[in-house]
């Protein structure tokens, strides 16, 4: 995707960007100003309307942890959390995230202070080439939250009962994240580990 409008990126603090846009501020006919929070930092961007959230994160905010795989919602490499929910950032326009709170893999942990899921992926060797891994980890964190929140899945036997973490539930709920290296078995082990289940 080629943006035609000049792009300005400002990591403004909350005070400096007080005029949060309640209506659409159109810069030219095909660009829009948008502000959202990424990993706790308020960001204000002007984007070509076509810019996906994925491209805004990677190309404009230099948060390249989130990966572009298929760019059509089929592979899950672009998975990020928006307002606490995992989504495919490739199938969402940046302009549609006014005021949202976005968490990417960079916001989950750092090399010196890893999120428990990141540490578990390392411990269980839950990757090979690593390209799908940020998406896998964001999705894994969300999967455990979704089970805790009682959101059912295709393999949930009793819709009225408390949801359980099982291998079948993990497999089903992770089906939107493809790993062409085939690290699935170790990914399941990592998620089980974080969930406190024996490997």
């Amino acid at each position: 995707m080629v943006g035609t409008a000049a792009v300005s990126v400002a990591a403004a603090n909350a005070g400096a960007s007080a005029q949060a846009q309640s209506t659409t501020a159109t810069i030219d006919r095909h660009s829009t100003q948008v502000s959202f929070t990424v990993n706790g930092t308020r960001r204000e961007l002007t984007v070509d309307n076509r810019t996906t959230l994925l491209d805004a994160l990677r190309e404009q905010l230099a948060l390249t942890g989130t990966k572009k795989g298929c760019d059509h919602g089929q592979c899950g490499a672009c998975t990020v959390m928006v307002d606490g929910r995992r989504i495919n950032s490739c199938l969402s326009l940046a302009v549609m995230h006014e005021g949202d709170e976005i968490t990417t893999i960079e916001g989950l942990g750092t090399t010196s202070d890893m999120h428990p899921m990141q540490a578990a992926f390392v411990r269980h060797d839950g990757f090979q080439c690593g390209y799908c891994t940020p998406g896998q980890i964001c999705s894994s964190v969300a999967v455990l939250e979704e089970i805790a929140a009682g959101i059912p899945s295709h393999v949930t036997e009793d819709l009225a009962a408390q949801m359980q973490v099982t291998d079948a539930e993990i497999r089903e709920r992770m089906s939107g994240n493809i790993c062409r290296c085939g690290a699935y078995a170790n990914i399941i082990a990592a998620i089980n580990d974080v969930a406190g289940r024996p490997a």
Partner: peptide, 23 residues
């Protein structure tokens, strides 16, 4: 929906992926 329209919950969770169903 889970209690009274189980067929609807079952159909929804049979479709797409967790990420897509969230949007």
């Amino acid at each position: 929906v889970r209690r009274d329209y189980g067929v609807l919950t079952r159909a929804l969770v049979a479709g797409a992926s967790g990420q897509l169903r969230n949007k």
